[in-house]
Every structure is written in structure tokens, then in C-alpha cells.
Amino acid sequence: MPALTVNGKVHQVTVDPRTPLLWVLRDTIGLTGTKYGCGVAQCGACTVHIDGVATRSCQVPLSQVTGNKKIVTVEGLATNGVLNKVQRAWLAQDVPQCGYCQSGMIMAAVALLKDKPKPTDADIDAAMTNICRCGTYQQVRAAIHEAAKA
């Protein structure tokens, strides 16, 4: 039975190996923090980390991520109940409006800061291609800069 490692926990999953990781997370494992927005890797609402790389899970079939791959979702960012510095910056900046895109935004920001601990505005522009329809971009930018100082 294929094993899927999500947030440090191993899950035995029996669904069709072509099923996108997004729907395995949401419907099979029950982690609904990762959102469906488009299904075609355009909006970024489904962003998770696969071995530390921000990836749009709607376009990743289960078969590609079983075995040794380590998946982290938004539910796995806080450790022992302590929020990640990006989540803390998001809280301080009061970023979310409806909040639906924010899981993906936060996962993208965490990956950006790992890659570039002090990102410039241009770095943020290049890395943060997630869509937010409420229009939280100004707050997202402020929160990333705040997290970079933490």
C-alpha cells in the first residue's frame, strides 16, 4: 500500500495513484487547509511543500509523492502549537480578508524566505504569484518583510 508522509505522519492511501495530491489531502486524509481554486496550477491556493519546495498540489499525482517524499501543508507549519514566523507576521499585519487563498500564500512565503531570507520587493513579486481576489497583496508584502526581520 502506498505510503504518503504529510506533516511528519505516514498515511497509507489506497486511492487511484493518478489522483492529484490536492484531493488526496482534502478528501482522503481530511486536511482541508489546502484549497482548491483552479485545478490548473494557476492560482496557488493549493500550494504545499514537497521536500521543501513550494508546489501546486492540484497538478501533482499521488504516484509522484509516495515513498520518501516529505509533504508539508499549512496545518504542519506550527510546531507544538507555536506559529511559524510567517504565520506570526500574517497575524501581526492582519493580512487575510476572506482567507481562502491565504494557506497557499503562506506556504509560498515560507518557501521564499527559506530561499531568500531577506527578500526584496522584486523577489516577492517573482515568487508570490498566488491569486487573491480580496486584494490582500499590500498586506502580504508587508507581512513578508516583517517575517524577514523576525
Partner: peptide
Amino acid sequence: DTLDKLTGKQIYGID
């Protein structure tokens, strides 16, 4: 209503 939107706990209709 911010905290749960940062951790994946917030349940929307689709969830």
C-alpha cells in the same frame, strides 16, 4: 477571525 485562516483550521463551505 484571523488566526484560523493562518493554520488551515478555518472551515469554509467547500471543506
